[in-house]
Design a protein around this nucleic acid. Sequence first.
DNA 1: TAGTGGTCTAGACCACATC
DNA 2: ATGTGGTCTAGACCACTAC
Lengths: 201, 201
Amino acid sequence: MTEKTASKAQAITSEVRRRIVDREWRQGDRIPDEAELAVEFGVARATVNKALQLLAEEGLLDRKRRAGTHVTVNPARKATLTIPIVREQIEQAGMAYSHRVIAQKRSPLPADASARMALPEGALLIHLRTVHYGDDTPFQVETAGSTPPPRPVPRRSTFSASTRMNGWCAISLVARRHGLSAENANARDARLLQTRQGTAL
Amino acid sequence: MTEKTASKAQAITSEVRRRIVDREWRQGDRIPDEAELAVEFGVARATVNKALQLLAEEGLLDRKRRAGTHVTVNPARKATLTIPIVREQIEQAGMAYSHRVIAQKRSPLPADASARMALPEGALLIHLRTVHYGDDTPFQVETAGSTPPPRPVPRRSTFSASTRMNGWCAISLVARRHGLSAENANARDARLLQTRQGTAL
DNA sequence: TAGTGGTCTAGACCACATC
DNA sequence: ATGTGGTCTAGACCACTAC
């Protein structure tokens, strides 16, 4: 219900997502061609293409030229962040970007924290505090923690030339671990985030 | 330089962004029609459309039906987050979403903090700590602070059915304030983030 | 009401990676 | 080699909303 009016592309996006969520199409499965889906849904291939690209951006689908479209095997890490788009803006705005790690600490994860999350007790926690500068003024303070595979901290700030910022807001995201994909996630995430593994370390 | 090969749409995106950054088109300016740009760049209107939509997502452009496309007046807040896309996934995955604010505190901004950022001294800081649940297990802990217009915390988590998460990572972002757009930013951000003002408060 | 973006289509060509 | 997605096109119709 509450199926609000949407574009055909959106509708197809939703339907395909539903099939994935409902396990009609399972992880690793290859889904039909754009052409086939176009026929099934009675739309042009371009429309299917748009819909599937959306899902690929969401991380639900993996698309390759000759291989076809597959349901992403481990969608866990997905959704990490799409924010970094604006980096270009910042740098192109003539702001000299720089950052400095002002604190770094390793410690076992607090007992209550490991209890509350599905964490193995005693997991190592790496904690960083970083300041990011736009030109000479700090425009971002970042604190981040992660478990074993110390992932670079995805971060993105906003605001372009001639603007002031003053507030701040901290967001915590879960990160996945365990299971498959502990490796290949890194490559893709790094690319998406335009960040390199261990850069800040 | 380093102008890597890209699609025509990407090229147009870059060129338009350059014009904005270089102030050839200034804040509030109305830029040419899709049709005009299509002629100028020698491409189909659909291609221009795609390019401009990208920039609109980035927050550099404001597009309205009859009004045309304008350079966003206050791009400061932009880039907040694009992450929330996955919310549907989470909820459609059959996870019952819920969250609870476990701490809320108002305090004056610490002196050193207001000094480091371009903040008026003595600014009020609102601090929240929230836990987000997927079904019964907490999958996200969030801490957020903001200045006067207590903006709801943009947040998004990841991971869909049958996956475990365990890590966590905190990100701090700057938020803009002051200047124009202190009002209209909220509406748009709220929509983008699928979050409502004051929901958690 | 008319101008502008939003979307779709049918068709085409290309690039790539797998077979 | 060839199937598949990536992209572009030219054209069309629609939906908004500022004028």
